[in-house]
Simulated scan of single mutants.
Amino acid sequence: METLQIEQIRFDLTWRIRHEVMYPDLPYEVIKLEDDPNGIHFGLFVDGLLTAVVSLFNEGKVYRFRKFATIVSAQGKGYGTFLLKHIISYVKLMGAEKLWCNSRLSAANFYSKFGFVQTDQRSVSKEIDFVIMELQLDN
């Protein structure tokens, strides 16, 4: 039976997985965010191995998560679901009214399962289609 554990981690510990999963063909610097030092970063460990990461930023009662990534060999095993549920619970405890992300269009159905709704705000970056998705929270 595997052990799953979520911990707050240093922002630089997210970079390897971000690069490997999100932009493996682009320079390493691309995955670093200017706001990284100001965020709250979570890592999901599977049997002690850092397997998934997400970075959380807030302005008042609105939280945004960015750079949500699970190593390729561990995708489809429920780790992303486990980590996203943790993030939703965390921001509720912090008194958040809304949680949002700029989702890859290819991942929109995943977020919809958790109550996130697509907005009409779409964009393209690095030849990838994105859509803003929001989750209204009741506290």
Rank of each mutant, 00 (worst) to 15 (best):
S103A: 15
I31E: 08
L83Q: 04
I6G: 03
R64G: 14
S55L: 01
K67Q: 12
N58S: 13
S55K: 02
V117Y: 00
L4Y: 09
A108S: 14
Y90G: 02
L26P: 00
K61L: 09
D12Y: 15
Q136F: 13
T3M: 12
F116E: 00
S125Q: 13
G39C: 03
Q5M: 11
L137G: 07
M94G: 09
M1A: 10
L105T: 06
L99I: 10
V21P: 01
E127Q: 14
H41G: 01
Q136A: 14
I88Y: 04
E59W: 10
L105Q: 05
F45A: 01
K113L: 02
A96Y: 02
E2M: 12
V91H: 10
S73T: 14
K61I: 01
V53P: 01
R104M: 09
T70F: 09
Y79M: 05
L137Y: 08
D120T: 10
V117K: 15
G48A: 06
I132E: 13
Y23Q: 03
S55V: 01
V53E: 02
Q121R: 14
R16W: 07
V53G: 02
Q8S: 13
V131R: 03
L26G: 00
Q8G: 05
N38K: 15
S106G: 12
G115R: 04
F45H: 03
V91I: 12
G80M: 04
E2N: 12
F110W: 05
K92F: 02
T14R: 08
F116Q: 03
N58E: 09
K61Q: 13
W100E: 10
S106I: 13
L33R: 11
F11W: 15
R16Y: 11
E97V: 13
P37F: 04
F82W: 14
G76N: 10
K98D: 05
T51A: 04
Y28I: 07
Q8C: 07
I17Q: 01
S125A: 14
R66M: 11
F68Q: 04
M22Q: 09
A69T: 02
I31H: 05
L84H: 05
N139V: 06
L105E: 04
A96L: 01
P37W: 05
P27G: 02
S89F: 13
V124T: 14
V21S: 03
K98G: 01
L49F: 11
P24V: 08
C101G: 03
R16L: 07
N109Q: 12
H19R: 03
I128G: 06
Y90H: 15
E97N: 14
M94L: 13
S73F: 00
I87L: 12
T81R: 14
L33F: 12
I31N: 06
